[in-house]
Amino acid sequence: MSKNNNSNMRQNGQSARLPRKRFYRARAHSNPLSDSHFPIPISPADVDYSQHYPHFFPSERSDDDNGSVPPTKVRFADIGCGFGGLLVGLSPLFPDILMIGMELRDKVTEYVKERILALRATNPGKYENISVVRTNSMKYIPNYFEKGQLSKMFFLFPDPHFKEKNHRRRVISLQLLDEYAYALEVGGIIYTITDVEELGDWMRSCLEDHPMFKAVPEEELEADPVVKLLSSATEEGQKVARNGGQTFRAVYRRIMLEDG
């Protein structure tokens, strides 16, 4: 315990240095079904994004010229962002788009927070568009995002939950896709990838069965710079690549519900 505290103190003292993963050891899983004891915003209007993206929300002193501009909204959400590899990879590709990672494990969230702060400190002006919140995205997506607010959602290497009685803990399910479809704008894209074939099949069939999602054609995927990051940017993806594992990808577009 005391060792941990010391290392944390050292971290705080020199926030410019990247945090080290070894000091943020966390359990691999967290129960998404349990009652949450962390604060949850009552509604999207209740989330103070200026704390997350100070660069994009200038303080009152400096907003003399653009007072009428509506605040920028988060457009990308990485659900279960883990150690934040995807956010860090995406940030320079879309410097003007706000992205948020959502992670249930508090230690991991702390790590990502520190990582982003350190990246901002060492690369002034960069990485201002990414942030992280600790939340249970299976329960509280509507508390963070308005209808149609997001243009991309990422579900990279989620927990497989093999047992049938635990399938309801999977982050992709027919029911939860309703909520993701609500948060995504029409034309928005949902990216999923896993190294577990069974889960890959499950996620694909859920998306296939859902009337508000349609597969993105292969040639579009090849042109999409984001797709390459799915397997290369995240810590989990790198691990799979290191071990020479296979990955299973499903990328779907949010479409209008056809009447019927």
Partner: peptide
């Protein structure tokens, strides 16, 4: 608030809104 579909057996997927407060 969910749109109640004409054929509910296919599921009610379209969320009209969430009333949060």
């Amino acid at each position: 608030i969910t749109v109640f579909p004409k054929r509910p057996r296919k599921g009610a997927h379209e969320i009209q809104s969430f009333c949060l407060g």
